[in-house]
Computed example of a mutant assay.
Amino acid sequence: MNESHLRKLIQQAVVQTLEKESGSAQENQADTTLKPGQVPVAVSNRHIHLSEIAVERLFGKGHQLTKKKNLSQPGQFAAEETVTLIGPKGRIERVRVLGPARGATQVEVSLYDGFTFGVTPPVRSSGDIEGTPGIKIQGPRGQLTIDKGLICAARHIHMHPDDAAQFGVKDGDLVQIMVNSERPLTFDRTLIRVSEKYKLEMHIDLDEANAAGIKQGAVGELKPGT
Rank of each mutant, 00 (worst) to 15 (best):
S24I: 05
M202W: 05
V219N: 01
P161F: 02
G99N: 06
V83I: 15
I135Q: 04
D163R: 11
F117H: 02
A154E: 11
E201V: 14
S72K: 11
A54G: 07
F115Y: 14
G142W: 09
F117Q: 01
P74E: 00
K197V: 05
V194P: 07
S51N: 13
G62R: 15
V41C: 04
G217N: 12
P184A: 00
S181W: 13
L111T: 14
T32D: 11
T82Q: 09
S51F: 10
D207V: 12
I53Y: 04
T132D: 04
I48F: 05
C152R: 12
F59H: 04
S125T: 14
D147P: 06
P100M: 05
I177P: 05
V194H: 06
Q106M: 11
D162G: 03
S51Q: 14
V83W: 00
I10V: 13
L6P: 02
S4F: 08
I10W: 05
V123F: 03
R7K: 15
L174W: 00
G213H: 06
A78Q: 14
G142L: 12
S24R: 04
D205H: 08
Q138E: 15
E93V: 10
L185T: 12
V55W: 05
G37Y: 08
V43A: 02
I92E: 02
T190K: 08
Q143C: 10
E80Y: 01
V179I: 15
P161H: 05
Q64N: 06
L222P: 04
H158F: 11
V41D: 02
K148G: 05
H158C: 02
R102V: 08
G168A: 09
G118R: 08
